[in-house]
Design a protein around this nucleic acid. Structure first.
Lengths: 218, 218
DNA sequence: ACACTAGTGCACTCGCGAGTATAGGAGACC
DNA sequence: GGTCTCCTATACTCGCGAGTGCACTAGTGT
């Protein structure tokens, strides 16, 4: 006997999760009210309580779905990282993708929300960390370990190199974005990630290589 | 006629602000209750309302005082930065001080709180940004502009260089610290800031200088 | 000793939001 | 067409925390 969910339920669930995402991201957990979510979903409050035990359960489900989405983005980035052969030629693309993914999607509001509620829902913050930023850092560290072995880069500690790459590229904008809803201007974004990648290559490329290709420009 | 504040008032004010700092940093604005603050201060709730119009005013005063304290730390760091002559010799010290100031004081909880309440009190987040991180970045940018002029470093954009320095040194730990109350192990801290400064010098020191001093080690 | 000012303790109002109850409506499946 | 299940709408309970009122106490200055 195969349990098939009533189509009305799946429909309601989708409406509710979308609305909850909007409301929670905009208001935060405590400030958001269940009535707000219901109204924004075009659904009766009772329907929400039919599907989720309480406000906390609704919140958990909402955030987990957002993490799921962020995770999908992360995966394509990780795949991209895995195929890199020539760092000088390809790292700028990786950097640009990283900056774009973190700074222009709804990742910034999600991170703010996770920080806000990290006391009440520490599992969610941990889950996010593991599946998004840590996954990217792991992929980068693997990449740099390889490139170190092949002599394309000079790497002492690949984990540290991965952190340096990530924070040279997005550090400043990420920090700014956390303290307020300022999206960096899209033009600025490319320039900053480019400068970050350039600095990384100056720090980690073998001398001859870096100089030959012209990455000495600062 | 010189207005002198009743000593009882100044005493109460100090007790209340200390307690409010503890409670707000630990609980966040909404979760904290005025009764909690009163109890933790050993003071009647009514006394709080004698000195502050409402909970929001108390919060503002509390945060502004914390910013004041962070500002004092910042100033000594800025003064230190202003006296740097030889980057290779002195930047490691600056990096270590920066890491220590940001990561081991109560700065991390303060930043979390400011992120949490940046929607309700955007002025506070702005005030903090201007007086703490931006002040440091400005000082660093000035320093690097100087060092570029004197040929100690090779600098294209001093502002970008300042961001690179700061986030190479504290970026990873800062980000980790925001998503949970994990203080980095004190041992790790020195190593990471050292690695960050080394990478910075590799990226920004003139070739001969960097190599002569031995900063090629990664 | 007296008056003034602040602090204390406690009981109170009041609004708000989570969660529940209930009665009725609408589609799906037989 | 009947029944089952889920949705809707409205109205409710209930607890909690912000803010107030008030009667009383204690320290200070003259």
């Amino acid at each position: 006997m195969i349990e098939v969910e009533d189509p009305r339920v799946t429909r309601s669930r989708a409406l509710i999760l979308d609305a909850a995402t909007r409301v929670f991201l905009a208001e935060g957990y405590t400030a958001a009210t269940v009535d707000q979510v219901a109204q924004s979903a075009g659904v009766a409050k009772r329907t929400i309580y039919n599907l989720y035990a309480d406000k906390a359960a609704l919140f958990r489900a909402t955030i987990l779905r957002s993490i799921e989405i962020a995770d999908a983005f992360t995966s394509t980035l990780v795949d991209d990282v895995r195929t890199v052969v020539d760092p000088v030629a390809e790292l700028p693309r990786i950097g640009a993708r990283l900056a774009e993914a973190v700074l222009t999607q709804s990742v910034l509001p999600l991170r703010r929300l996770l920080v806000m509620e990290s006391r009440g829902f520490p599992e969610l913050a941990a889950e996010y960390r593991q599946r998004a930023p840590d996954a990217v850092l792991r992929a980068l560290a693997d990449l740099f370990a390889d490139l170190g072995r092949t002599g394309h880069l000079v790497i002492d500690d690949p984990v540290v190199a991965a952190e340096h790459f990530a924070f040279l590229v997005i550090g400043a904008d990420l920090d700014r974005g956390m303290l307020g809803p300022q999206q960096p201007a899209p033009g600025t974004l490319g320039a900053r990630s480019g400068a970050g990648v350039a600095a990384f290559l100056r720090a980690y490329a073998p001398d001859d290589r870096a100089r030959r290709i012209g990455w000495t420009a600062r």
